[in-house]
Design a protein around this nucleic acid. Structure first.
Length: 398
RNA sequence: GCCGGGGUACCGAAGCGGCCAAACGGGACGGACUGUAAAUCCGUUGGCCUAUGCGCCUACGGGGGUUCAAAUCCCUCCCCCGGCACCA
């Protein structure tokens, strides 16, 4: 195990809040003394198997704990995911079957292992202890917390005041999460800023079950998505996935609003903001994008992504690799032409959409802008189509 | 359970018998400008049809009805909100 000073330095780096820090130090000291690693819990949601780079920040912190010699305990909230949430607040949590959860977690783990160390890792499903919980046990759990305390959560308080429904399940949900901490005897629980309330409940509940309360470790703020407005989330479509292909990852990061650069640089990279901030914003983003691609792939890949970006968007050249689209041979006319709309339709949501895109000047065929829909164009194998700024495709007939 | 208000497109919200694929705002998308930034400006925003046509189909919570014609009127069911009642 790593010496205390070093552990602290590493763990506190970029941490948003540690509640309370003195407990963390105490626990770390004891771990060193007894050579018993701390159990560091992180709850994961099996409804979304895709990890984005904001969650990556939290996983990174979990990795720090592992590197200090502690045990990471991933709690898969499979039980809660199967129940669903009737009041369906922000993103309606849809109910999942056992098989779906299993599959999602398979994918999740693959991605998480891009960050975590498989050796100091324990994965547990909370159905293990929640599924068989009897009603009297549930009542016991419920008796350990009060409505008043629940209403301290801002979101609940607001909704309560505004008469927006709050399902009882929403009260039970944090209790279930808290009970997870009891079940696995967590020493530390990690989470983003949005989890602060839940982590604190875990701490309180453990104490009421006669356990030493966990340290609540806020590892990341709520990071905005690439739109710079809403929090990063798959359901808002404003995320960068840790498995996004390098070029896409790079491109997405280049399109973030300037106001976001500092936060991303600070929380997602080891770059020195004081240095970076002197550069031109475009340069700043390039550094950021390069650093993040390097983290999830490697430096050579990041170099290539940078070069490709310059090539396609700065110099407006054709990308080195383009998706291939195969058209049915029935669209090809005897004279070797294809109606333009047939050509674009596979790249649009609908044929009407394809037509609109053409009329709006979003379409280029072999770098020639097309704006009329009532025309047939000569087809050649490998014809290059560009739709909007981002989408390229090479067309073939099948 | 009773009384009242409400359920319209991705979201918010108009419309309250025909001119409604549905005003307006937001979002999203496309274009111009740029640094694939922001701001701004312009345009698009159900689907289908070789396709700009007073074309066809689907759509205003579900179902049924009145009418030449319904998002708009009537019946019924479901859901949400508020008030009252109930309170083991």
């Amino acid at each position: 195990m790593v010496p205390l000073e070093e552990q602290l330095k590493r763990l506190k780096r970029r941490a948003v809040d540690i509640i309370p820090e003195s407990d963390l130090i105490k626990k770390l000291e004891r771990a060193l003394r007894t050579q018993k690693p701390l159990r560091v819990k992180l709850g994961v949601d099996p409804t979304s198997p895709d990890i984005h780079i904001a969650i990556g920040v939290v996983l990174q912190k979990l990795r720090d704990f592992q590197d200090c010699g502690h045990t990471a305990v991933l709690i898969v909230g499979d039980f809660t995911a199967r129940i669903g949430d009737p009041s369906g607040r922000s993103a309606q949590r849809k109910m999942l079957s056992k098989a779906e959860i299993e599959e999602n977690m398979q994918r999740y783990q693959e991605q998480a292992l891009k960050i975590l160390d498989p050796h100091r890792l324990e994965v547990r499903y909370n159905s293990e202890w929640l599924e068989g919980m009897s009603f009297d046990k549930l009542l016991e759990l419920a008796s350990k917390y009060t409505v008043a305390a629940m209403l301290e959560r801002e979101d609940f308080a607001k909704r309560f005041q505004a008469n927006v429904p709050i399902s009882l399940v929403e009260f039970l949900y944090p209790l279930a999460q808290a009970y997870d901490s009891v079940a696995i005897q967590a020493d530390v629980e990690l989470g983003g800023e949005d989890q602060r309330f839940n982590l604190l409940i875990g701490r309180a509940i453990q104490e009421r079950y006669g356990q030493e309360p966990q340290v609540c470790f806020i590892a990341a703020p709520v990071l905005e998505g690439i739109d710079g407005v809403k929090k990063m989330s798959k359901s808002f479509g404003n995320y960068v996935g840790v498995t996004d292909p390098p070029n896409e990852m790079f491109g997405k990061l280049m399109s973030i609003p300037d106001a976001l650069i500092e936060r991303y640089v600070t929380f997602m990279t080891d770059l020195n903001w004081e240095e970076i901030k002197r550069l031109h914003p475009k340069e700043q983003k390039q550094r950021l994008a390069h650093a993040i691609v390097t983290r999830y792939y490697d430096e050579a890949t990041a170099d290539a992504a940078l070069a490709e970006f310059e090539r396609v968007f700065a110099r407006k050249e054709r990308p080195t690799e383009v998706q291939k689209i195969y058209l049915d041979k029935s669209v090809l006319k005897p004279n070797g032409t294809v109606w333009i709309v047939e050509l674009i339709a596979p790249l649009a949501k609908s044929r009407s959409e394809a037509k609109r895109l053409i009329e709006q000047g979003a379409v280029e065929l072999d770098s020639v802008k097309i704006t009329r829909t009532d025309q047939d164009v000569p087809f050649r194998d490998g014809l290059l189509v560009k739709v909007g700024k981002h989408t390229f495709a090479e067309l073939h007939i099948q």
